[in-house]
């Protein structure tokens, strides 16, 4: 179990991490979602013991990390944001080296390497130099390298950056497998789809501060608008959405690229009254869908900015 209490780290005047707290249990994936510069890497570095916090503490199974050689470090596996492998060495040589850093040797090391390569599907490329690998394969090996010493907690810092969709799915499957084995996963990303798909609990951070910490379900409940009705109008050009706002169920209404989007508190009662209103006012439509708002909307709602352009 990982517990982080009020971590702080300043770089000069920049508060890179400004009082972050979180908790992660076994067989759970925690997502740290935030734009570039939010403080995700700095947080992960402090958890892994690479960086001393200015204040706050990190507890692993209840005990803090003390010093470079603290055996508690063995409970943590770090997958750094930048691919951390020697290009000039083979996959096997890399894993042999990285495993030995945790004191593994002989049959134990061999078994650990076999299992890790098997999980990420690179067994047949073990004897090839990393330089010959694709971006996706390097990312998978980067993950495998963190698993050799069988850590309880895995810190994954944007592990899918620059990866093709196929490798990304492969990595997601690997992470699901690890979670089923009871590992604690801390996953940082600036892709909300990734957080939505993988994480049991999502912590949204911005400017070093936690701005939301909930399950996906809970985050959706935080939204003022819970459902979106999208109606493709026959003649959207002259449509004025303002009168819709007078209806009691309607939270928002706008026309975007020929589609009328109406925000509703309650789909069951709201949808029929909208459609009835449209019919009565002589607007015909061709296609109706409903959408859940995504985390992008949550972030937008909380910060007034989108994840991408902040």
């Amino acid at each position: 179990m990982l517990e982080v209490k009020a971590l702080r780290k300043n770089y000069g005047k920049i508060a890179a991490v400004d009082g972050i707290s979180l908790r992660a249990d076994s067989a759970q994936t925690i997502g740290l979602l935030g734009p570039n510069g939010a403080g995700k890497t700095t947080t992960v570095s402090m958890i892994a013991g690479l960086l001393p916090p200015d204040s706050g503490e990190v507890l692993i199974d209840g005990s803090p990390l003390r010093g470079d050689t603290d055996p508690v470090k063995r409970k943590i596996g770090l997958v750094p944001q930048n691919i951390a492998l020697y290009d000039e060495l083979t996959a096997l040589a890399n894993l042999n080296f990285l495993g030995a850093l945790y004191g593994l040797s002989g049959a134990g090391l061999k078994r650990a390497i076999g299992e890790a390569l098997d999980l990420v599907g690179l067994t047949d490329r073990a004897k090839d130099k990393v330089a010959t690998f694709s971006g996706g394969m390097k990312r998978r090996l980067n993950l495998a390298a963190a698993l050799l010493h069988d850590p309880q907690i895995l810190l994954l810092d944007e592990p899918t950056v620059g990866v093709d969709p196929q490798s990304r799915n492969a990595i997601f499957d690997n992470l699901e497998t690890l979670k089923k084995r009871g590992k604690t996963l801390v996953y940082t990303t600036h892709y909300m789809e990734e957080a939505e798909r993988l994480c049991d609990r999502i912590i949204i951070i911005d400017h070093g501060k936690v701005i939301a910490n909930d399950t996906l379900h809970g985050l959706h409940r935080m939204l003022p608008v819970t459902n979106l009705l999208a109606i493709e109008l026959e003649s959207p050009d002259h449509f004025k959405p303002e009168p819709l706002l007078a209806l009691p169920e309607v939270e928002s209404a706008e026309v975007k690229e020929g589609v009328l989007k109406v925000g509703l508190h309650n789909l069951t009662t709201g949808a029929p009254s909208i459609l009835r209103w449209l019919a009565e006012s002589g607007h015909s439509y061709q296609h109706v869908t409903s959408e859940r708002p995504d985390l992008e909307t949550v972030f937008l709602t909380l910060t007034g900015r989108t994840l991408r352009d902040s």
């Binding site: 570095s45 892994a48 690479l50 603290d70 063995r74 951390a84």
Partner: peptide, 15 residues
């Protein structure tokens, strides 16, 4: 400046 350094530092090794 590379991720490898983070990996080396994450392992229980003395300076």
């Amino acid at each position: 400046q590379s991720g490898l350094w983070q990996r080396l530092r994450a392992a229980p090794l003395s300076r």
